[in-house]
Amino acid sequence: MSEPKDVGDIGITVEFSGGLEMLFSNERKHKLSIPAKDSTGAPLNVGYLVTYLCENVMKDARKDLFVLDGTVRPGILVLINEADWELEGEETYEIQPGDNILFVSTLHGG
């Protein structure tokens, strides 16, 4: 969206595909500047990013199509810099400046 607002923000790229972009203003690629620390002061991890996306980026009301029971809905793949997030610690992965986080839905049809 914009350049980092202050030193406390980090710039990352978040992408949605496989139909998920429909929930995010039909935009596949979102350049975001997000706080480097979560509300408790801990470094920003993917789990918090997901919450952040839900609250700040997602305009669609159907949150449950993205997040279910507090985590990314089963059937949605998460790639952190091209790697399966399961190889990176899933929600606990600490986001670094310049990271690319991709959410791909496997749930949509053709």
């Binding site: 496989g18 139909g19 429909m22 059937g75 793949l77 790639l79 399966d84 049809g109």
Partner: peptide
């Protein structure tokens, strides 16, 4: 696996289209 199909398409940069039928947008749930 569907997961691997999607990953294969992603890593090979295949050109595919994902959508929901406008008449049953909830079907995938």
């Amino acid at each position: 696996y569907e997961k691997e199909i999607v990953l294969y398409a992603h890593h090979k940069s295949l050109d595919y289209f994902s959508t929901e039928c406008i008449y049953s947008p909830e079907a995938f749930r």
